[in-house]
Write a protein that binds this DNA or RNA. Sequence first.
DNA 1: TAGGCAAGCAAGCAGTTGCTTGGTAGCGTA
DNA 2: TACGCTACCAAGCAACTGCTTGCTTGCCTA
Lengths: 190, 190
Amino acid sequence: MPRRTELLGIAAELFAEKGFTNTTVRDIADAAGILSGSLYHHFDSKESMVEEILTSFQARLFEAYDEVLASDDDPRTKLERVVRLSFEAIDQHRAEVAIYQNDSSYLGGFERFGFLAERNAQMRTMWTDLVREGVAAGVLRQDLDVELVYRFIRDTVWVAVRWYRPGGDLTHTDVADQYLSILLEGISRA
Amino acid sequence: MPRRTELLGIAAELFAEKGFTNTTVRDIADAAGILSGSLYHHFDSKESMVEEILTSFQARLFEAYDEVLASDDDPRTKLERVVRLSFEAIDQHRAEVAIYQNDSSYLGGFERFGFLAERNAQMRTMWTDLVREGVAAGVLRQDLDVELVYRFIRDTVWVAVRWYRPGGDLTHTDVADQYLSILLEGISRA
DNA sequence: TAGGCAAGCAAGCAGTTGCTTGGTAGCGTA
DNA sequence: TACGCTACCAAGCAACTGCTTGCTTGCCTA
């Protein structure tokens, strides 16, 4: 693995754990076993590190989403697959998701991180379209506030990164199963 | 209003907006129209400001929770009331909830903020007990993973502080209605 | 009208921050 | 053996951080 990639991984872990601004370049350098100045041989700035971490993660994530959306599955299946994909992303890219969850509101304030808002809009379109298709197809309730349903799903799925631990008792599939069951059927007794 | 209270309000808004560590004492002083050093006439430290903000908020919140729990409502009604109370707290104490959401993992690392973990445990007991009572009473599904249901509810409710805007189109009651409807009945067509 | 007090100013200190500069060690290759 | 490249070191700078100190101002009240 190229040193550059290695360093990005170390930085991502620290950003996820302590937050972007609370992580100093000296923290990253210490964890890598080098001096802080040496980091600037590999990267322009601390910001360019997060930028690279987030963009490459999002690129992979949306590629996976697009594959589902392009399929000819029915709306409900697509919705399920997208939820499962998201929990899988939390499992396999914990640090990246955590950074996205915790620091994107701060980072979004800088021009160079405008792509965050774009991806958010893309995400919103994806979810609301899926819900609307489900309603149109008659598999989802007609009285839903699509925008609210989108927010509830998005929040519950992504915030799970705060408590989900890869390798624990619950697999990401377990979590997705339970969540989909609750989301689709509710918690009331039939 | 005492100057002290006024300053806490200003600080809370800034903490909520930019995060605790990203808010400098000079930011707070500027917003209050005084010099940074003058803040120390009112408070020991920046940390004691957040501490006071969070403890007083949580005290009021749990007081309201306790009233519901002590009532003789049935489990499902209690669950509904607690959800509604939480959305109401987001509406009326946006800044405090936002600080609690965004900075408690960082603050929790300091000894003086141990009360955050205690309140978290208290919150967890409250929710899981409510769900278990609902299951026992036969109004909630028997196959629920109580711990997971608790996490999903907690996350969805509190993270709403990120997008809910008091005075907007949706009242906190609207949001609570929709969420309870989804949570209890699911989004699938009956 | 003298005393006490809440509120704030002016100046600065020590530590931390992201980042820069000029240099070097080691390795592969021509 | 000279060259170029990757990876890093050593030292430090300017800006910013939370906080301290000694002092002043204006108001209330006894």
